[in-house]
Design a protein around this nucleic acid. Structure first.
Length: 941
RNA sequence: GCAGAGGUACCCGAGUGGUCAAAGGGGCAGGGCUUAGGACCCUGUGACGUAGGUCUUCGAGCGUUCGAAUCGCUCCCUCUGCACCA
């Protein structure tokens, strides 16, 4: 059979049809042993690429492996459709974005189909179909397709409303002011790299300025904004841009002078602001005096043309000892003002700003790149190693890292400062407007900072199975760090209406935390067994908690399902979920579900990237479409590739050449097993017992690996170690039909979770049932003959030794004589191992003492002691496996003699085998004295 | 800003105290099978070695230990996630 003829396309669709027709994916309550696994559902606003299939594949493998161990498996899937992505996509289609249209056409979406996609809801249903039909089913996933759901379906919305009701009851929904990106035309916008809402500024960060109120002699306030309020003690002057026209405004009965844009920003973020419609040229303020609040020192206002009216308030306080910009500016004005050093920091001398400016050779304000670098350097150094000095009176000696908020809070509390938030770079809305930051006075939050919830969640995490283990250690820290999350938003965005504020929609992360529970209902919703308006608080309380009473039989049925399947055993998702999705998934369960219904495990996998660790993307080339790759390599090859190419916990680089290797691997296994099944029967002998033992060893090793989700170990064993051993069996003259059948059957079962189509096709040769629904043999009933396993190890080690001798001596052998160790050496080894096992260590004295109690050994004390001396050093290097190897009882001479013809054909010469104890021994070079247990001596002619 | 990962032979990548000159794969070289082959099989792939051995090696340096790729410290370098994006 030619592996090139392995027609995976037909084979895959043939078996998939059968699985799906027979609905073997459906979760049913049968065995009282359940397993609930799901992956973090994907968003639906575009096609997926080969990288996305990695996690899905892991999930299917685990689910299949569990099924084959007799578990009732629930493996559902759904779509996260809330939020803006699908709206953004629809908008792109609507304005006929050329890239989007070209992509849709490339994937076979026709005009009719494209025109449909101007509606976000159609976007969701279109991609949902693509995911199910072109990705999940094509990959052979045994997802329970009767439970598919989306987060914008009416049933799901009922569920989310109930969830928020529960959060409210637990006092985890709170209201407080929030500052959010806002467009005066479009309302709230999301600022993020994907730039769905905005046209520029996706990387902008929100910076929090402290606006400090410096007073002019007439009481008017000159507000300077700073990110470093603690440096107020070092202020020597103010900077005002003489070319800018400032304006006067009223804010809580105070009169402020600010730039025009500062007024607008303040207006969005503060109450009680009035425009006094009075302008003031910056130049007129130069050389006025202001009083520094808190320390009441007077400083002059100087001309600073660099003060940008669009940054913060447009007015700057000058701290020349710690801000390189200020230092250089002050130097250039030639004013007789001395910097005031307020922070002691090692290595930066009397004046850190000056030191760094000199180090970097900065002499002019125009060297902005260098000045930025200098600012950064000074800031980092001061923040991490600096502390305030005597100039700061009550704060002297405190580290900068600790003081920041203290000074800020003190200023704000004393009404000497306010806060102002601003983007680090310009953010422009889709519509062209500038995006600002607006105060929402009564924003709703989920209170993740709640101490009780955090503590309880941490406690729960300790009991979970989390992969990789390192993530388990990280999680408590993440929970501590996780802050309250604004959970609703007003504007164009799909999702569930927030029950406590009309017109506001629950934000997409907040509506995807408890959702695995909904998979228990989605089946009934899909089958229209339950009405949407029936899904009330009473309903959910009943089915999840058993509170209240069932209104009908379906309620009862659903309650039983919930009781049976919940909690989730594994939630699997990519590494991007580590700091958001998984924490809220845990915390919402802890908040709402009783202890026994909280998640049992999490599996985090890393990504598939393009060469050079770039995030995979079509625009950069190289990435392959899922459907194309599936056709080119075959599904099983891709499944094997994902599983075997690297640990789940590293990023892997997509490389077509490597995937091709796996394609060949799959075809070769197909060819190999076909050959095995066509072997004519030989009688059984020792090698058959060996192969049966090895097969059983592999059954238990792979089962163990599957149970620990150690998929790579499973794949390596199945696809590389097992065929090696079968080859050894053939090489050793094996060829018994029954042995081969037993071995191949077990092998096929083991590979089914990873390469189900291949296994199904081969299994079909000798079975009329599906291997996917078969159950693995019970581990406890597997028989392993240790002596045969050890015997073969002896044979193969001996071959290596002979080979090495031949390589080194370059002798072409005429005759090889093998001497197994004399009985007394075996006795000494056993004594040594026993002693070392008993005592945990071994010393020469002990060993000799024990040896001398045996009269047979005592007779040749001299030789024995020499050998024992050598042994004591070696014994402690042995591990458990070695010890088993030594302790297993085999008659080496007999075992080797039975393999004599194998040695003869291998080395193509005559072979003689003697025990060193044999009286008829032929030992021309006295080699037999080197023989040791498990290491026969060798003589080559 | 907060947090995390990692540097292993020509390459990818296992390995977290002795089984380690270091799995597996790829590449390369030689041989086999073949009309041919990008398919497959075997052998070799740190150095030295006419007896199964010895020596050097796991980013750099120091240390702990009878023993270190593995543990500790210092340094250098690379990468990643998150911040109403799911």
């Amino acid at each position: 059979m030619n592996p090139q003829n392995y027609n995976y396309i037909n084979i895959e669709s043939k078996w998939q049809q059968q699985w799906y027709n027979e609905k073997i994916y459906e979760a049913n309550k049968k065995t009282n042993k359940k397993f609930f696994i799901h992956f973090a559902y994907p968003g639906v606003s575009g096609y997926l690429h080969v990288g996305h299939m990695r996690g899905f594949t892991y999930c299917d493998i685990i689910a299949r492996a569990k099924r084959m161990q007799g578990y009732d498996v629930l493996f559902p899937a759904g779509f996260h459709a809330s939020g803006i992505p699908s709206i953004g996509f629809a908008k792109k289609v609507e304005r006929k974005d050329p890239k989007t249209i070209a992509m849709l056409k490339e994937y076979g979406c026709d005009e009719q189909c494209i025109s449909n996609l101007t509606d976000p809801k159609n976007v969701v249903s279109y991609f949902s179909d693509v995911y199910v039909e072109d990705y999940w089913k094509k990959f052979g996933f045994l997802i329970d397709y009767s439970r598919i759901m989306s987060t914008i379906s009416p049933g799901y919305k009922q569920f989310i409303k109930w969830q928020f009701q529960k959060l409210y009851e637990k006092n985890l929904l709170i209201q407080k002011p929030h500052f959010a990106p806002f467009c005066s035309k479009c309302g709230p916008v999301a600022v993020d790299k994907s730039e769905t809402d905005i046209s520029q500024g996706g990387n902008a960060e929100i910076m929090e300025f402290t606006v400090i109120k410096f007073k002019l002699s007439d009481g008017t306030i000159l507000p300077a904004a700073t990110l470093r309020p603690e440096t107020i003690f070092g202020v020597t002057n103010m900077w005002i841009n003489p070319t800018v026209t400032y304006k006067k405004i009223h804010i809580n009965n105070e009169t402020w002078i600010v730039s025009k844009s500062a007024f607008e920003k303040l207006n969005y973020q503060h109450d009680n602001i009035k425009d006094l419609n009075e302008t003031i040229p910056g130049s007129s303020l130069i050389h006025e005096q202001v009083t520094i609040p808190l320390i009441n020192r007077k400083v002059p206002v100087l001309s600073g043309p660099f003060a940008d009216p669009d940054v913060a308030t447009g007015i700057v306080m000058s701290v020349p000892a710690h801000a390189p910009y200020d230092y250089i500016a002050l130097k250039e004005t030639k004013e007789p003002i001395e910097p005031i050093t307020i922070i002691d920091v090692k290595d930066l001398g009397e004046n850190p700003a000056k030191t760094v400016c000199e180090q970097l050779n900065i002499s002019s304000q125009s060297e902005t790149t260098k000045l930025e670098e200098a600012t950064d350097l000074v800031y980092k150094k001061e923040f991490h190693t600096g502390s305030l000095n005597q100039e700061c009176k009550e704060y002297a000696g405190i580290k900068i890292a600790e003081i920041k908020d203290t000074v800020k809070n003190k200023l704000i509390e004393s009404n000497l400062a306010v806060q102002l938030r601003e983007f680090s770079e310009d953010v422009i809305c889709r519509c062209g407007e500038h995006v600002v930051i607006k105060k929402i006075p009564d924003q709703w939050f989920v209170q993740y900072s709640n101490q009780k919830l955090t503590d309880e969640s941490k406690e729960h995490i300790a009991s979970m199975h989390i992969f990789p283990e390192k993530y388990k250690e990280e999680l408590p820290g993440i929970l501590d760090w996780f802050d309250d999350r604004a959970c609703i938003r007003k504007g164009s965005w799909l999702g569930t209406e927030f029950p406590f504020k009309q017109g506001w929609i629950i934000e997409p992360i907040s509506d995807s935390t408890l959702y695995p529970a909904y998979y228990l209902l989605s089946k009934y919703v899909n089958e229209k067994k339950i009405n949407i308006d029936e899904m009330t608080t009473e309903f959910f309380d009943y089915v999840f908690f058993g509170n209240g009473e069932a209104k009908n039989e379906i309620w009862e049925e659903i309650r039983k399902d919930c009781a049976y399947w919940y909690p989730v055993d594994i939630n699997l998702g990519g590494k991007e979920h580590k700091t958001v999705h998984f924490p809220v998934f845990i915390m919402n369960h802890v908040a709402i579900m009783p202890p026994e219904k909280r998640p049992q495990g999490i599996f985090v996998h890393w990504w598939v990237t393009q060469k050079g660790k770039e995030k995979i993307s079509k625009s950069k080339g190289g990435a392959e479409h899922v459907a194309e790759a599936a056709e080119l390599y075959g599904i099983d090859a891709m499944r094997l590739y994902y599983t075997h190419v690297g640990s789940p916990f590293v990023d892997i680089e997509w490389d077509a050449k490597i995937v091709t290797k796996y394609k060949n691997k799959v075809a070769n296994i197909y060819k190999f097993i076909n050959q095995l099944l066509s072997i004519n029967s030989e009688p059984k002998n020792q090698i058959d017992t060996w192969l049966e033992s090895k097969t059983n060893e592999y059954l238990s090793k792979v089962t163990y690996a599957y149970n620990n989700f150690d998929l790579r170990v499973a794949a390596n064993t199945i696809f590389y170690e097992i065929p090696q051993d079968i080859n050894w069996y053939i090489k050793r003259g094996g060829g018994n039909k029954n042995t081969i059948k037993t071995c191949v059957n077990a092998w096929l079962q083991l590979m089914t979770p990873i390469t189900p189509h291949l296994s199904e096709e081969l299994w079909n040769i000798t079975h009329d049932t599906l291997v996917s629904t078969s159950i693995l043999p019970d581990e406890k009933r597997l028989k392993i003959s240790e002596s045969h396993v050890a015997g073969e190890k002896l044979v193969s080690n001996l071959i290596d030794d002979i080979q090495e001798i031949l390589n080194v001596t370059k002798i072409k052998p005429q005759r090889i004589i093998i001497y197994t160790a004399p009985n007394w050496k075996h006795m000494v080894v056993h004594k040594a191992i026993n002693l070392s096992e008993e005592n945990g260590s071994l010393n020469m004295g002990q060993l000799m003492k024990s040896i001398m109690t045996n009269p047979d050994l005592k007779k040749q004390a001299k030789q024995v002691s020499k050998y024992a001396g050598k042994l004591t050093g070696e014994i402690k290097k042995l591990n458990e496996k070695d010890i088993t190897y030594y302790q297993t009882n085999i008659d080496e001479t007999k075992y080797l003699t039975e393999s004599k013809s194998f040695f003869e054909s291998l080395f193509n010469c005559s072979i003689e085998i003697y025990s060193a104890d044999d009286s008829s021994i032929n030992d021309p070079k006295q080699k037999s004295r080197f023989a040791e247990p498990r290491r026969p001596a060798i003589y080559v002619e």
